[in-house]
């Protein structure tokens, strides 16, 4: 089992480790599905949820890109994303609830 994982994690024809790359691609596909919901979404809450979850996916994608390119120090940016995503979600929810920001 561990041998198989090690074999998968070995640098291969893709030039990077395949599992991390595959995980990133899967996350991008899920971003695509969320994007459909954000564009079609009948209510405002669908769009807010889609935006928030895309923000979370972006945090993960940034981390994974850092590991794909063998520079894991990109995690700092992921932290910034996490904070800012929360901030903009709060602002939008406040607008929906009160029709103003104050």
């Amino acid at each position: 089992m561990f041998a198989l994982l090690a074999e998968l994690a070995r640098p291969n024809a893709f030039g990077t480790d395949a599992p991390t790359l595959a995980a990133t691609i899967v996350l991008l596909v899920s971003v695509f599905l969320l994007l459909i919901r954000a564009i079609k979404g009948p209510t405002a809450y669908d769009r807010i949820l889609a935006m928030n979850v895309i923000g979370t996916k972006a945090v993960l994608i940034v981390c994974l890109i850092g590991f794909v390119t063998q520079r894991p120090d990109f995690i700092d940016i992921a932290l910034v994303y996490g904070i800012l995503n929360f901030l903009s979600t709060i602002a939008i929810l406040k607008f929906v609830r009160h029709k103003r920001l104050g």
């Binding site: 994007l35 769009r47 895309i54 903009s88 939008i92």
Partner: peptide, 13 residues
């Protein structure tokens, strides 16, 4: 506005 926020997140990635 929502979509432009999503655009920024993807662009940052």
């Amino acid at each position: 506005v929502m979509l432009s926020s999503i655009y920024s997140l993807l662009m940052a990635c």
